[in-house]
């Protein structure tokens, strides 16, 4: 006999189900209950940086968009600083920069939109620098445990080429599933980022 290790075990995950919007984004479920609602707006007007929208669809194994998906995003500000007490970099965080957004896809088209600013580079492990990126967490009916991935930016080719996470993806071809394509529409900067749950173009998902 030895002493028991006595760790608790993590609570198991269960799917968010089709009605995730009731609890997490009631306006999408069709009603109004809370005074403050969380939204897809990650950065307020006082936040510095280039205004961008990240847009795309989550696509299932048949090629159809997942129209009841919910995503959450987490990112640093344009200086590369996270709005979190453990980010000890000597940089400021704007008072209206949340860094976090909650995004529901459109029930008809399946398109999701993150309204944010482009993040800066952030520190990686052991002194490395990570290219600008946004972390995503994806839940829906039929997804048993939230999927984690990252959005990188097509116009950051040289930073992306040195990014430790992108380079850790063994098949160079799969790295492009993590890179959003920049375009401009009516004066807005749009990064298109489709997420493929299955198939040849399956997005790289992480166990973090």
């Amino acid at each position: 006999m030895v002493q028991p290790l006595n760790y608790f075990k993590e609570t198991p995950s269960q799917t968010a189900g089709p009605y995730v919007h009731i609890g997490l984004a009631p306006a999408y479920a069709g009603f109004d209950i809370f005074e403050n609602n969380f939204s897809n707006v990650v950065a307020g007007p006082n936040t510095k940086g280039e205004r961008i929208k990240v847009k795309g669809r989550v696509i299932d194994g048949t090629g159809a968009p997942v129209r009841d998906v919910m995503l959450e995003s987490w990112q640093a500000n344009s200086e590369g600083k996270y709005n979190h007490p453990e980010d000890s970099q000597d940089k400021a965080v704007e008072d209206d920069f949340l860094g976090w957004g909650r995004i529901c896809s459109d029930f008809e088209s399946g398109v999701y939109t993150i309204d944010t600013i482009k993040p800066g580079s952030v520190p990686g492990r052991n002194g490395a620098i990570q290219a600008p990126h946004i972390s995503l967490w994806i839940v829906a009916r039929g997804i048993n445990i939230g999927l984690q991935t990252r959005v990188y930016f097509s116009d950051e080719a040289s930073a992306n080429a040195k990014d430790p996470v992108l380079n850790f993806v063994e098949q160079a071809d799969r790295r492009k599933t993590l890179i959003a394509e920049r375009s401009e529409e009516n004066g807005e900067v749009i990064y298109t980022f489709d997420i493929h749950l299955q198939g040849e173009q399956e997005t790289v998902f992480f166990d973090v």
Binding site: T15, E86, P123, R125, V204, D207
Partner: peptide, 28 residues
């Protein structure tokens, strides 16, 4: 057995990442 998972489940292995500031922080 949970049919909706069939077309919504990634088939490739998850890539295990050592955590950086990006994973060790989160919204407050």
């Amino acid at each position: 057995g949970y049919k909706t998972s069939v077309t919504r489940s990634p088939q490739k292995a998850l890539l295990s990442l050592e955590q950086s500031l990006s994973e060790m922080t989160g919204p407050v």
